[in-house]
Each structure stands twice: as structure tokens, then as C-alpha cells.
């Protein structure tokens, strides 16, 4: 059995205790809600996108340390980035979570930085859904804001 130290890395607990970009954005920012039907966690992502760039992002909702910290790190990584770069990052992250994605090829050269700490989650397959909740919700938001 893998030890929990592989899961609860210090940077993860830091984002859990002090989440970044927590809050909400008023319309016309796009709000998307994601649920983890397994555990009842829910998360809302607010996206302010203009000229193909994520100008601002915030998140709210409730969840475990993994879903909250993963979403917090994600918001830091995507704020100010062009949407296409964000999509490539999502693909890269889901690839690390061993989830295949048929939306495009994974660019392995993309640096994940702090997000790399979530790699240990793969050893706890039940928690992969927690780690990807915010990212899947982000994807939905990107799709609906471009729809």
C-alpha cells in the first residue's frame, strides 16, 4: 500500500490551507459547475475570457484536499494564458493522471511546475477523480465560452 506522504505533499497541503483565486466572478464571466458523483464534492469555475486569453479565473465550492488544491494550482497556472495554451496544459495534466484525451496530442515539454506534486495521486486511483474535477470543469467552461 502506498503511503499517504505520496499523496499529501507539502505544496498540496499549502494550496489546500491557503487556496489561491478562491471566490466568484460576476457575469459576463462564464460559470461552470462540476460534481464528483462519488463523494458529493462540487466546484464552480468562473472564467473571464477575452481575445482568446483567460484574463481572470476564480473557483468556489467544497471538496477534499486533493480537489481543492488541484483546482487552486490550476487557476494559478492558467491565469493570463491564451486559451490554446490552457487547453494544452489540461491535456498534459490529464495525461499525467493517466487519462487519455482524444482532443489532441500531448505536448510532454509543457512544464507543470508545482502541479507535478499531484503525480502521486496516480498511486491512489480512487482519488484521480478528485484531482481532475476542477480541470474537467475548466474544460467545460472553455467549451461553453467558445460555443
Amino acid at each position: 500500500m502506498p503511503g499517504v506522504e505520496d499523496l499529501y505533499r507539502e505544496i498540496i497541503l499549502d494550496h489546500y490551507r491557503t487556496p489561491r483565486n478562491r471566490g466568484e466572478l460576476p457575469p459576463p464571466a462564464v460559470c461552470t459547475e462540476g460534481n464528483n458523483p462519488l463523494c458529493g464534492d462540487d466546484i464552480r469555475i468562473f472564467l473571464d475570457i477575452a481575445d482568446g486569453v483567460v484574463r481572470d479565473v476564480k473557483f468556489s465550492g467544497q471538496g477534499c484536499s486533493i480537489s481543492q488544491s488541484s483546482t487552486s494550482m490550476m487557476t494559478v497556472a492558467i491565469k493570463g494564458k491564451p486559451v490554446e495554451e490552457v487547453r494544452a496544459l489540461v491535456r498534459r495534466f490529464k495525461h499525467m493522471m493517466t487519462l487519455s484525451d482524444d482532443e489532441g496530442a500531448v505536448d510532454e515539454s509543457i512544464k507543470l511546475g508545482d502541479i507535478e506534486a499531484l503525480g502521486g495521486v496516480v498511486k491512489f486511483p480512487v482519488r484521480i477523480k478528485c484531482a481532475t474535477l476542477g480541470w474537467n470543469t475548466l474544460l467545460e467552461g472553455l467549451n461553453s465560452s467558445q460555443g
Binding site: V4, L38, C39, G40, D41, C64, S65, I66, F124
Partner: peptide, 28 residues
């Protein structure tokens, strides 16, 4: 402590508890 995190840590000593909404979301 979030129930998911709690059950993960209890699992380290083989204490098996359920975490989640117990298929009763309205009650939760």
C-alpha cells in the same frame, strides 16, 4: 478534515469507513 481525506488516512491502518454522500444527497 474532509471525509475523503479522513478515510484515506484511516485506510493506512486498515480502518475501512465510507466517505461521501451515501447515496442520499438530499439528506446530506
Amino acid at each position: 478534515i474532509h471525509p475523503h481525506d479522513l478515510s484515506q488516512i484511516l485506510d493506512q491502518t486498515n480502518v475501512c469507513v465510507r466517505a461521501g454522500h451515501h447515496c442520499a444527497k438530499p439528506l446530506m
